[in-house]
Protein backbone atom coordinates (compact mmCIF):
# COMPACT_ATOMS: atom_id res chain seq x y z
CA UNK A 1 0.00 0.00 0.00
CA UNK A 2 3.02 2.27 0.34
CA UNK A 3 3.46 1.83 -3.36
CA UNK A 4 0.04 3.35 -3.92
CA UNK A 5 0.89 6.41 -1.83
CA UNK A 6 4.19 6.73 -3.63
CA UNK A 7 2.63 6.62 -7.08
CA UNK A 8 -0.14 9.02 -6.12
CA UNK A 9 2.40 11.45 -4.77
CA UNK A 10 4.71 10.98 -7.74
CA UNK A 11 2.09 11.57 -10.38
CA UNK A 12 0.60 14.33 -8.25
CA UNK A 13 3.93 16.10 -8.21
CA UNK A 14 4.23 15.63 -11.95
CA UNK A 15 0.74 17.05 -12.46
CA UNK A 16 1.52 20.13 -10.38
CA UNK A 17 4.92 20.56 -11.99
CA UNK A 18 3.44 20.50 -15.48
CA UNK A 19 0.61 22.73 -14.25
CA UNK A 20 3.13 25.34 -13.19
CA UNK A 21 4.99 24.92 -16.45
CA UNK A 22 1.83 25.96 -18.28
CA UNK A 23 2.25 29.50 -17.04
CA UNK A 24 6.01 29.62 -17.03
CA UNK A 25 6.78 28.97 -20.67
CA UNK A 26 6.24 31.61 -23.29
CA UNK A 27 5.77 29.13 -26.12
CA UNK A 28 2.07 28.57 -26.51
CA UNK A 29 2.37 25.09 -27.91
CA UNK A 30 4.56 24.09 -25.02
CA UNK A 31 2.04 25.64 -22.69
CA UNK A 32 -0.83 23.62 -24.13
CA UNK A 33 1.17 20.41 -24.13
CA UNK A 34 2.33 21.05 -20.55
CA UNK A 35 -1.34 21.21 -19.61
CA UNK A 36 -1.88 17.99 -21.52
CA UNK A 37 0.87 16.22 -19.62
CA UNK A 38 -0.47 17.63 -16.36
CA UNK A 39 -3.85 16.10 -17.19
CA UNK A 40 -2.19 12.85 -18.28
CA UNK A 41 -0.40 12.71 -14.92
CA UNK A 42 -3.79 13.14 -13.26
CA UNK A 43 -5.04 10.22 -15.34
CA UNK A 44 -2.08 8.22 -14.10
CA UNK A 45 -3.02 9.23 -10.54
CA UNK A 46 -6.47 7.82 -11.19
CA UNK A 47 -4.88 4.59 -12.28
CA UNK A 48 -2.80 4.62 -9.10
CA UNK A 49 -6.03 5.13 -7.18
CA UNK A 50 -7.45 2.04 -8.88
CA UNK A 51 -10.12 3.96 -10.75
CA UNK A 52 -9.08 2.43 -14.01
CA UNK A 53 -11.94 3.47 -16.24
CA UNK A 54 -11.77 7.12 -15.24
CA UNK A 55 -8.01 7.16 -15.54
CA UNK A 56 -7.98 5.79 -19.06
CA UNK A 57 -10.85 8.06 -20.03
CA UNK A 58 -9.01 11.08 -18.67
CA UNK A 59 -5.83 10.15 -20.53
CA UNK A 60 -7.75 9.67 -23.74
CA UNK A 61 -9.95 12.74 -23.63
CA UNK A 62 -7.26 15.18 -22.67
CA UNK A 63 -4.91 14.24 -25.52
CA UNK A 64 -7.40 15.44 -28.08
CA UNK A 65 -8.73 18.29 -26.03
CA UNK A 66 -5.37 19.86 -25.32
CA UNK A 67 -4.11 19.39 -28.86
CA UNK A 68 -7.12 21.34 -30.05
CA UNK A 69 -6.29 23.92 -27.43
CA UNK A 70 -2.80 24.13 -28.87
CA UNK A 71 -4.02 24.99 -32.33
CA UNK A 72 -6.35 27.66 -31.00
CA UNK A 73 -3.46 29.14 -29.07
CA UNK A 74 -1.36 29.26 -32.19
CA UNK A 75 -4.22 30.85 -34.08
CA UNK A 76 -5.16 33.49 -31.60
CA UNK A 77 -1.92 34.49 -29.97
CA UNK A 78 0.50 37.05 -31.22
CA UNK A 79 3.62 35.14 -30.45
CA UNK A 80 2.87 31.42 -30.18
CA UNK A 81 6.50 30.48 -30.58
CA UNK A 82 7.42 32.50 -27.53
CA UNK A 83 10.30 34.15 -29.36
CA UNK A 84 9.44 37.58 -28.14
CA UNK A 85 9.12 36.51 -24.52
CA UNK A 86 6.10 38.75 -24.26
CA UNK A 87 4.59 39.70 -20.99
CA UNK A 88 1.14 38.17 -20.95
CA UNK A 89 0.08 38.58 -17.40
CA UNK A 90 -1.62 41.30 -15.45
CA UNK A 91 -2.50 41.90 -11.81
CA UNK A 92 0.28 39.53 -10.98
CA UNK A 93 0.59 40.20 -7.28
CA UNK A 94 -3.12 39.89 -6.75
CA UNK A 95 -3.21 36.65 -8.68
CA UNK A 96 -0.36 35.12 -6.76
CA UNK A 97 -2.05 36.08 -3.52
CA UNK A 98 -5.37 34.68 -4.66
CA UNK A 99 -3.76 31.49 -5.86
CA UNK A 100 -1.81 31.07 -2.65
CA UNK A 101 -4.80 31.79 -0.45
CA UNK A 102 -7.13 29.55 -2.44
CA UNK A 103 -4.65 26.73 -2.62
CA UNK A 104 -3.68 27.21 1.02
CA UNK A 105 -7.27 27.08 2.16
CA UNK A 106 -7.91 23.90 0.21
CA UNK A 107 -4.69 22.49 1.57
CA UNK A 108 -5.68 23.34 5.14
CA UNK A 109 -9.02 21.66 4.69
CA UNK A 110 -7.34 18.62 3.18
CA UNK A 111 -4.85 18.27 5.99
CA UNK A 112 -6.92 19.37 8.94
CA UNK A 113 -10.19 17.60 8.32
CA UNK A 114 -10.50 14.29 10.13
CA UNK A 115 -11.32 12.10 7.17
CA UNK A 116 -12.28 9.13 9.27
CA UNK A 117 -11.52 5.56 8.35
CA UNK A 118 -10.09 4.96 4.93
CA UNK A 119 -11.26 2.01 2.89
CA UNK A 120 -8.34 -0.23 2.05
CA UNK A 121 -9.73 -2.27 -0.80
CA UNK A 122 -11.26 -0.87 -3.93
CA UNK A 123 -13.59 -3.00 -6.05
CA UNK A 124 -11.91 -4.84 -8.91
CA UNK A 125 -11.57 -2.89 -12.12
CA UNK A 126 -13.96 -5.01 -14.16
CA UNK A 127 -16.53 -4.84 -11.41
CA UNK A 128 -16.13 -1.05 -11.25
CA UNK A 129 -16.70 -0.64 -14.95
CA UNK A 130 -19.81 -2.75 -14.72
CA UNK A 131 -21.12 -0.96 -11.67
CA UNK A 132 -20.42 2.44 -13.22
CA UNK A 133 -22.34 1.40 -16.30
CA UNK A 134 -25.30 0.32 -14.21
CA UNK A 135 -25.09 3.59 -12.28
CA UNK A 136 -25.03 5.59 -15.49
CA UNK A 137 -28.05 3.90 -16.93
CA UNK A 138 -29.83 3.46 -13.63
CA UNK A 139 -29.96 5.89 -10.78
CA UNK A 140 -27.87 8.62 -12.47
CA UNK A 141 -29.46 8.32 -15.84
CA UNK A 142 -31.13 11.70 -15.66
CA UNK A 143 -27.86 13.41 -14.75
CA UNK A 144 -26.05 11.55 -17.51
CA UNK A 145 -28.64 12.41 -20.11
CA UNK A 146 -28.68 16.03 -18.99
CA UNK A 147 -24.93 16.19 -19.40
CA UNK A 148 -25.25 14.70 -22.85
CA UNK A 149 -27.89 17.15 -23.95
CA UNK A 150 -25.98 20.04 -22.43
CA UNK A 151 -22.82 19.21 -24.33
CA UNK A 152 -24.80 18.90 -27.55
CA UNK A 153 -26.37 22.29 -26.88
CA UNK A 154 -22.98 23.77 -26.11
CA UNK A 155 -21.52 22.36 -29.30
CA UNK A 156 -24.28 23.87 -31.39
CA UNK A 157 -24.15 27.15 -29.53
CA UNK A 158 -20.38 27.41 -29.80
CA UNK A 159 -20.53 26.70 -33.51
CA UNK A 160 -23.28 29.25 -33.97
CA UNK A 161 -21.26 31.87 -32.15
CA UNK A 162 -18.10 31.10 -34.03
CA UNK A 163 -19.35 30.99 -37.61
CA UNK A 164 -19.29 34.15 -39.56
CA UNK A 165 -22.36 36.27 -39.55
CA UNK A 166 -24.08 36.78 -42.83
CA UNK A 167 -23.29 39.82 -44.84
CA UNK A 168 -25.46 42.73 -43.86
CA UNK A 169 -25.95 41.46 -40.37
CA UNK A 170 -22.26 41.82 -39.65
CA UNK A 171 -21.80 44.01 -36.63
CA UNK A 172 -18.67 45.76 -37.73
Amino acid sequence: MHAQTFFIAFFGLAAVWFGVAVFRTSSMVRSALALLFSQTAIGAMFLAMQTEFLGVLQIMMMATEMSIMAIFMVMYMMDPGGLGAMEMTHQKRFSIAAGAIGGGAALAVAVLTPWGPVVAQAPAAAQQTRALGLELLGRSMLVFETAGVTILTAMIAATAVAVRRREGKAAR
Binding site: M77, M78, D79, P80, G81, L83, G84, A85, M86, E87
Partner: peptide
Protein backbone atom coordinates in the same frame (compact mmCIF):
# COMPACT_ATOMS: atom_id res chain seq x y z
CA UNK B 1 7.64 48.30 -24.89
CA UNK B 2 9.84 46.33 -22.52
CA UNK B 3 9.69 43.14 -24.51
CA UNK B 4 12.73 40.94 -24.57
CA UNK B 5 14.74 41.54 -27.69
CA UNK B 6 15.08 38.56 -30.00
CA UNK B 7 17.98 37.67 -32.23
CA UNK B 8 17.26 39.06 -35.62
CA UNK B 9 17.96 35.75 -37.35
CA UNK B 10 15.26 34.08 -35.37
CA UNK B 11 12.76 36.52 -36.65
CA UNK B 12 13.48 36.03 -40.24
CA UNK B 13 12.93 32.36 -40.29
CA UNK B 14 9.84 30.48 -41.35
CA UNK B 15 8.22 28.04 -39.06
CA UNK B 16 7.60 29.31 -35.63
CA UNK B 17 8.50 32.63 -36.60
CA UNK B 18 5.19 33.28 -38.22
CA UNK B 19 4.58 34.82 -34.94
CA UNK B 20 7.61 36.85 -34.42
CA UNK B 21 7.24 37.85 -38.00
CA UNK B 22 3.91 39.37 -37.23
Amino acid sequence: CGMTLVPREAQDEGGHAPDAVD
